[in-house]
Design a protein around this nucleic acid. Structure first.
Lengths: 337, 337
DNA sequence: GTCTGATGTGTAACCGGTTACATATGGACG
DNA sequence: CGTCCATATGTAACCGGTTACACATCAGAC
């Protein structure tokens, strides 16, 4: 703020025009080596730093991207945000954080604001992105990528992991350690991730004699959701010996619920989660989980978005990352009966 | 981007000058009621939305604040960030997220970038803010507030909670439930919070016959830190029956360490943390903690900062919030021996 | 010797707002 | 009736960059 030097000051001191200074700044156009030296020297003398706002206005690029997510205090998102921010920072971009609480209204009003601020692109990790918003986004020519959500009937650029395969891995693992009756607590079916995981479960177990649709009980993807669902589940099926929860937070709720009931994990019931958030290591017992490369997904989202911004590429694309099973105490192999 | 209407378009359609439109927009200066109606109508017809970047350049206010913190994936910060973002959003501001990893270099380069982008103010929740940076910040006339960190010899605006009193509450609680020998795992002494908590511990226990300086062992404020420190502690003092950890993350590490050693909590050793992060409810056993109003601290930080921005107030100030003890299973009263 | 294209630089418009200043009107007041 | 001030509006400069376009120089090609 204080008498910051402008490009005109630099031009005057270097004895050239602003256009030349701008050329030096952006390394485009022709500039004589000696002239460049003069300009650089003038910049240093004045401690010149180009004004990003003016740049944004003139050039329509602000070096800012936005991240819209439901709630940063949901433990899944901080690591994602970190991955995004790191990659953005590395590529010279800055990140605006927006919590939508999965309310379409909030999300919409954010998009509005972000557009006014000339953000260069948006990463959606939010659930609510509906048909119309997507269409509108595509029309507006504002680059965006979608994390972990697929939008029906619309081709967008999506980064996600293989939820279906991951779910199969989880269930297979429970089978491998000797579980005889495995239940699944699934997340909100609006979410493609929750649907895919449910599908992975069902495909894997439907051939077994013990299979029953009532082994699949709904949960909210939150800690409470797991806690409540496990109550429900045990009422219907007191004899389950393996639970695959749709995400880690619910799995932690399951652990808590089982603890309260005095049911031993993994001895009586083995539990497996999905996501690979760091809480799984803190939990007691430590939670087996199908880990997504959360940080990397974030980083990739930012990289893909920024590449789009820089190249103007508007094509859709799917970037699918691999999951991996991390076995921990909540599914340690029991001695077969 | 697509042919967005500008203020001049509105002016033309309404048959007035841009100045008048601007006045209507900002509700300042004199505008005739009827003229205003015409302008409003023109705005609606054109779906006019003022360009925030141009506004920022002309008016030097961008409606953006920045949050610099060490690492959003440290569980203390997401809730803080949420509080900040909510308040900012409510007051019409947008938040840029910056992870400094407590590296002075990163922090400095962020400040640089943020200044170029004309952010209206900065919230520091970072540890590294040193003397020089603070002095420089104050000179630069860029409003800022500091969360939970006090800077030596410098008067700034600080939001924090009463760490000293909180620590006393924690230790007193352990005494109340019958602990006979209480240890403290303290955090990095560069942090005022860690120092204050240590002081609270020491003041409370130093009169007791069992008091010994070696009951205070250092930790890193991270999960691992608690895990390692409790090892160390038990080597020196196998007979402790109460541990006050400098923060929740270390307390969770302590729980894990005790579990591995087969020591029962709270029966053999009671454990109390500090912060009140939500993980304390997920832990097993659930962790007693001295809870800071984390969300509220964030919200207050944003509110105070934005008030400064709007009023131009540059005075320092201290905003101290109250902590409260949340008793949970990790310190359930044992039957006295 | 002229034409051409690469190189180098400056002028001024433009991005889309804000605002200082000028100008005009009309009622109140002495 | 002249003065003063509140009201109302427009003109144009300004914020600090980018860039289209014009112009100049110079080397190599024909």
């Amino acid at each position: 703020m204080k008498g910051m030097a402008t490009i005109r000051d630099v031009a005057k001191l270097a004895g050239v025009s602003v256009a030349t200074v701008s050329r030096v700044l952006n390394k485009n156009g022709y500039v004589n080596k000696e002239t460049e030296q003069k300009v650089v020297k003038a910049m240093q003398q004045l401690q010149y730093e180009p004004n990003a706002v003016a740049r944004g206005l003139a050039g329509k690029q602000t070096g800012t991207i936005a991240l819209i997510l439901p709630d940063i205090s949901n433990p899944f998102f901080p690591e994602l945000a970190r991955g995004i921010e790191d990659a953005a920072q590395r590529l010279g971009f800055t990140v605006i954080l927006c919590n939508s609480d999965d309310q379409g209204q909030k999300e919409k009003s954010y998009i509005e604001v972000l557009r006014k601020k000339y953000v260069d692109g948006i990463i959606f990790a939010s659930n609510t992105l509906g048909q119309e918003e997507v269409v509108q986004m595509k029309q507006s020519s504002l680059p965006f990528v979608i994390l972990d959500r697929a939008v029906a009937n619309q081709v967008c650029t999506v980064i996600r992991c293989n939820n279906y395969e991951g779910a199969k891995m989880a269930v297979q693992h429970l089978l491998d350690i000797g579980c005889q009756k495995i239940a699944h607590i699934y997340g909100p079916q609006e979410l493609i991730t929750a649907r895919e995981r449910l599908r992975g479960y069902e495909e894997t177990v439907k051939g077994f004699p013990w299979y029953s649709p009532s082994l699949m009980v709904p949960g909210s993807f939150r800690f409470d959701g797991g806690l409540q669902a496990v109550e429900e589940l045990l009422r219907l099926h007191p004899d389950v010996d393996g639970i695959f929860a749709g995400n880690d937070l619910m799995a932690l709720g399951v652990l808590k619920g089982l603890k309260r009931k005095g049911i031993a994990v993994p001895d009586q019931i083995a539990v497996c989660g999905f996501d690979g958030i760091s809480l799984t290591e803190i939990a007691e017992p430590e939670l087996t989980t199908v880990a997504q490369p959360i940080y990397e997904m974030g980083a990739m989202a930012a990289e893909v978005l920024i590449k789009k911004i820089k190249t103007g590429d508007t094509n859709p694309g799917l970037f699918e990352l691999e999951v991996r099973l991390i076995q921990r105490d909540s599914t340690r192999k029991r001695v077969r009966g």
